[in-house]
Simulated assay, not measured.
Amino acid sequence: MPLTKPNQELRRDLHGLASDLKWSAIELMRIAARLSQAGSEADAQAVIRICQVMQAGEDRLAGYGDEVGSGSIMRKPLP
């Protein structure tokens, strides 16, 4: 069964947000590497922990998008 337009938009939004988180985490990892090279290991480790949280969020959002695609999650029509 094809997705309704609202569900297509929801799926696209969820996958887009997951992609944004992935890109942000990659950029933060680059910053963490520079911090480490500059001798700020504690700061680098803090940024890496933030990246790990973001990556977990990315995985959840992508999973929700997949569930929308399979019909497990659906956007309710507005009243």
Rank of each mutant, 00 (worst) to 15 (best):
D59P: 02
M1K: 15
A46Y: 06
A25H: 00
A62P: 05
Q8G: 07
D13Q: 06
E41C: 02
D13A: 11
K22G: 05
A18L: 06
D59F: 08
D66F: 14
P77H: 07
A38I: 00
E67F: 15
L10Y: 07
Q55Y: 11
K22M: 02
W23C: 02
I26D: 04
L28F: 07
I26H: 00
A44I: 10
P6E: 00
A46D: 13
L10R: 15
L61G: 03
P79V: 02
S40C: 11
I50Y: 03
S24Y: 14
E41A: 12
R34K: 08
V68I: 06
A56T: 12
E27N: 10
W23H: 07
E27P: 02
Q45I: 06
P6V: 06
L17D: 04
Y64R: 10
E9L: 08
G16S: 01
A56P: 01
M74W: 13
S36F: 09
P79C: 08
M54W: 00
Q45Y: 15
Q8A: 11
L28R: 11
M1I: 04
H15M: 01
L17T: 12
L28E: 05
L3C: 04
D66N: 15
A38R: 12
E27W: 03
R75H: 08
L3N: 09
R75D: 01
H15L: 06
K5H: 00
R11K: 15
S36K: 14
L14T: 03
A33M: 03
G65N: 00
S40Y: 03
M74A: 14
R34F: 06
Q45S: 10
S70P: 01
R30N: 11
A44Y: 06
A18S: 09
A42L: 12
E67M: 13
I31P: 06
G63L: 03
I73L: 15
D20E: 15
L35S: 04
S19V: 01
D43E: 15
P77M: 11
A42K: 15
S72Y: 15
A33V: 13
R49H: 14
L17P: 04
